[in-house]
Amino acid sequence: MCPHLRFLVLFVFVVKASFVNAQKINGISFVASRDKVTQENVSPVVQLGANYAAVMPFGFIRSVDSPTVVYNTDRQWYGERLEGAKSYIELLQANDIKILLKPQLWIWRGEYTGYLTMETEENWKILEASYTAFILEYAKLAQETNTDIFSIGTELEQFVVNRPGYWKSLIKKIKTIYKGKLTYASNWDEYKRVPFWDQLDYVGVDAYFPLSEMQTPTIESVIDGWRWWKGELATFSKTHNKKILFTEWGYRSVDFSAKEPWTTDRTITNVNLEAQANTTKATFEALWNEDWFAGGFIWKWFINHSESGGSDNNRFTPQNKPAEAIIKTYYTKK
């Protein structure tokens, strides 16, 4: 190969790689707060290099067999309501951060939303009407604020499995209101059973895949742990002709952080910052250059940055921990 041709091939490769990285969704999950947001709350997101934020208002349900979604009430925190979500979106957008609007359900005492199931047809109909009112309210907000991506639901496995016709009808209703891109945030072990990906723009996955059984996972062990899941995700993306978007991803700063990454158990008291840092870095190394992968949203980011996370915190947030610096490195990489 002549030197000029070799240079041209190298140039094209570098440009292509840079383009792929530049187009990734480098997001954070911007947690709803009781407080209004100010520029002081958004500046750390900008400094991190994030180009997207997930804004997450909430609807509440009494139990896994209760059919009524309660939302946008004065008893909710400011950021959980329509007014708060709108102000969060507008300030983030003013800082050139694009938005995933991701309305979510919270079941009393934190029961898993995937178990939401009705015992009678009557209650299914009530739930469908209630959920439709909830989600269309936020679809209107997404359109009004020119939000880039809208999630039609989060981890609602039994609702989806039992009522597939409802969801396909709901998507059509959403599309009459909102003209941007759509996704659904499926759990990591749910996404293959979702029947309506053909109607959406991204395959959304809350990516708590088990990756390593080491107490302090090494970067190499986590990269190796991704090999199987990467193959499945790449094949699924190709089959459906949709990119995979991690609507949530992240790791706690605890021992065995990559063994069962979905674990929220508060009885776990140890802190392992290295475990979180290694799993985070390895996930970037394993996925961010894959062309089937759209990017993702770090779980999770609290608005009061200076008071969040820290060296004695073992929760998911990377704030004020070594993992934050790692995320910044990859989010600002050119």
Rank of each mutant, 00 (worst) to 15 (best):
N41C: 11
Y112A: 08
A282P: 12
S18P: 14
S33P: 11
K281D: 13
D148L: 08
V15E: 04
T269V: 15
W288D: 10
E157N: 04
N304R: 15
Q76I: 07
K333A: 06
P164R: 03
G84M: 03
I223E: 08
Y52F: 12
D265S: 11
K24L: 02
E248P: 12
G165E: 01
Y166Q: 08
A85W: 05
H4S: 08
A53T: 01
Q319S: 14
W226A: 01
R163Q: 09
W228P: 00
R109K: 15
A22T: 11
A286H: 01
S66M: 00
W108D: 15
W188Q: 11
F7R: 15
K230A: 13
F60G: 04
L48H: 05
Y251M: 01
E260Y: 12
S311A: 10
I219L: 01
D148M: 06
L48A: 03
P3V: 13
N270C: 08
T38R: 09
E137A: 12
K243I: 10
Y112W: 15
F316T: 00
A22N: 15
V55P: 00
N72Q: 12
D35C: 12
S18A: 14
G225R: 06
I149M: 04
T176G: 04
E111N: 08
Y78M: 08
Q39F: 07
A94F: 06
I223Q: 02
F246W: 04
G250I: 02
G153F: 02
G27T: 13
I61T: 09
T117V: 11
D265F: 02
N278H: 10
V9H: 02
L82N: 04
A142L: 11
C2Y: 05
F30R: 07
A133T: 00
E157Q: 08
K243F: 13
D148A: 14
A185F: 03
N72F: 09
I28K: 13
N241H: 13
P3N: 12
I326G: 08
Q93W: 00
N289G: 12
R75F: 00
K172I: 12
E122G: 14
S87T: 13
N304V: 13
L82S: 05
E324V: 05
L245V: 08
E121T: 15
K86R: 15
I327V: 03
V160N: 07
